[in-house]
Structures are given as structure tokens and as C-alpha cells.
Design a protein around this nucleic acid. Structure first.
Lengths: 182, 182
DNA sequence: CCTTCCATGTAACCGGTTACATGATTGC
DNA sequence: GCAATCATGTAACCGGTTACATGGAAGG
């Protein structure tokens, strides 16, 4: 009975705000998905595992005919979360198709196409930044560490945007003076 | 017979440098893994699919008793790669356990622990930057678009490092004047 | 009434990793 | 002789997504 990484996302979410699987999913979609996603197909089965392991306890909170189970951490769950948060290992993976296309863009042998790929990368960052700015505008009372992560996200995407703009300037400059050669 | 994303990584790799599955894997580990990873368990089966689809052609290049098949793109393969590279969609996903831990670090209720998590995030970026700088030092004759992606990587990690340092300064400052409160 | 949100789940599928198995060649 | 590298593959497993199924509550 070992729990996956998603178990810790749930533990972390429920620690601050006890709630339903639906609530956990809502938090994930609003916040953690930018660096750690999760679907219902993972959340509900994992909730059951966590309860079986005694790390969370569900309490029936049905309103009329609508089912609802509110979960909160047990003492063992709190300890498990602490242990996880204190453990030093922290994997980091990126899957960026925009960068992949840019990386191989020389196969197109066309500066304009390269420029287009840079713009595609830029568009991705712009969209993500837009979303994060929306969150920043509405969520004022998040905990300091959550604000920190939000701030990081805003910063990264702003940096990336600036980088793309810089590359675009360089590429269009080269295009004008040195036709067709990258 | 639809090919997965990994098929395009292979197509991109073989376009510039025809070679074996081993060669493709080497390129992936050296370069694309920073934004798109791939294992032998994907590469070899996908090579077969690509060949069956007529997108690549393998040529026997065994040296003595050591097997080796050199693949290169067919005309159809070139076209497939072009089509992919020109298509506008570009997914982007991040899985950063360091950010996850930082996000939930308030559960530890301890500024020192938060600081430690920031340092963990920093360490990840420092390590990746170190690796990329190694690549930058050795690989001088990469194509312009590959250099661009490398430059992007160097830039992102340097920005992240600076951000972590800034947060550390802020946090240690707060710690000194405002004991224990984040 | 109808749409949107709240709420809970599952089964099939798929992309990807890990671990294993095998063996030749090169260079120290 | 031995280690590192070159080279090819597969089977089991697992983490995760997608699509589906179901239905109550709230608000316009």
C-alpha cells in the first residue's frame, strides 16, 4: 500500500482545506496544475487508498439527495505530509512541444518559419501568464508559500516573453540585412 | 497506424543526422530530454512503426558481428516532419516537485523549512544550468535553432536562480526582524 | 425549463519507464 | 583481462488520461 505522488497533492490540499474529491480537483485545476496536474481518474481511487491507509478520514456531508464526503487529515496523515514535504528529493520534468518544434525548426530551412515557432512559444507563455495574472488578481489571501509559487510562475513567463521578443527582434533584424540566412 | 509524438522526435533527429536507434537515444539524452524525453522502450518500437509507415528507411551497417541499422528519412518522412513542424499546436506541461513542496510548505509552519524548499528549487535549477553550460561549452557547431533552444534553457535557469536568491534574501531578512512569521 | 455547477465514480486505453537479456568492439 | 561504450530489443508494469455514466441542487 504505497501511495503515489498524487496522494501528497491530496494530502496537501486537504491539510489546509478539508473537503470533497471535487474540491481537491477544483484546487488542482485552479492552482497546482501549472506544476502538477491530476484528474478525477486519479483522485477518487487515491482518496480511497488514503482512507484505507488511515491518512485521511471521510465524513458524510450529504445535502439532501446529493452525496458529499468531506475528507480531512488524520494525525497520521499530517505526519505523512510533513515527512514528504521535508524529504529533499524533488523531481522536475518539462514537456514543451514548442521548444521541440523550435529545436528541429532548421529542418524547415526558413527564417520566417523559425520566427513563427518562436512566436508559438511566446503565445504559450503569454496565455499561461494571462491565466496566472487572473489568479493573482482574484486570490489575495493565499498563504505566503502559495503566493511565492504564483510569483515564481508570473516571473518565469514574463522572462520567457521578454526572451521571445528579443529573439524576434534579432531574427527580423537578420532577415532584413542577411536575407534567408539564420 | 498513427505515430506518437516520439515519432517526430525521431524524425527530427534522423533528418539532420541519419543513424541508429542508439544514436537517436544519444541525441535525446544529450539535448531534447530537457524538454522532451524518450527511452529505448519507446524508440525501438517506434522506429519499426516509422519504417512500416514508409517514413524512414533502414540500411544495414553492421561492423563485423555488431549489429547496426542506420535509418534515414524518406521523402514521405521529410514531408511528415515538415507538416508536423509547421502545425501550430504546441502542448506544454511541467511537473515540478520542488514547486509542489514549496506550494504546500506552509503546512510545516516554519520559515526555515520554507527557506529549505526554496533552496531545493534553486539546487534543481543550478544543476540543470550546470549541465546546459557543459553542453554550451562543448557544442559549438549546433544549428541556429538548436542554439536558440539552448540559450533559452540557460536563460530560464539563470532567471530562476536569481529569483531563488532574491526570495532567500527576503526570507532571511524577515526571519531576522520578524521571528517565525512568514 | 434549462443550463451550469456540484458530486462521485469506473473501465478502457495509452504513453512511458524499468528492468532485464544479450553480445560485439574499443581502449586502457 | 576488464571496463566502457556501442547496439538492439522486450515484457511487465504503472501512472495518468479519456470517455463515459449518473444524478441532485441552484439560479436564471
Amino acid at each position: 500500500m504505497k501511495l503515489g505522488k498524487i496522494g501528497y497533492v491530496i494530502l496537501g490540499a486537504l491539510h489546509a482545506d478539508p473537503g470533497s474529491g471535487y474540491d481537491v480537483k477544483a484546487l488542482v485545476d485552479r492552482s497546482t496544475r501549472y506544476f502538477w496536474a491530476a484528474s478525477y481518474g486519479q483522485i477518487y481511487p487515491e482518496l480511497r487508498k488514503l482512507e484505507e491507509a488511515g491518512l485521511i478520514a471521510g465524513e458524510d456531508a450529504a445535502t439532501g439527495g446529493r452525496a458529499r464526503t468531506v475528507y480531512r487529515l488524520t494525525a497520521a496523515g499530517e505526519e505523512e505530509l510533513r515527512g514528504y514535504l521535508l524529504s529533499p528529493d524533488a523531481s522536475c520534468e518539462l514537456r514543451d512541444e514548442g521548444l521541440l518544434k523550435l529545436f528541429f525548426a532548421d529542418a524547415l530551412d526558413d527564417v520566417a518559419a523559425t520566427l513563427e515557432k518562436v512566436r508559438a512559444v511566446r503565445a504559450n507563455h503569454a496565455e499561461q501568464l494571462r491565466q496566472l495574472e487572473g489568479i493573482a488578481a482574484t486570490v489575495k489571501k493565499a498563504t505566503p508559500t502559495r503566493q511565492l509559487v504564483l510569483e515564481y510562475g508570473l516571473g518565469v513567463h514574463r522572462w520567457a516573453l521578454a526572451w521571445c521578443d528579443d529573439v524576434e527582434r534579432r531574427l527580423t533584424g537578420a532577415e532584413a540585412t542577411d536575407e534567408g540566412t539564420l
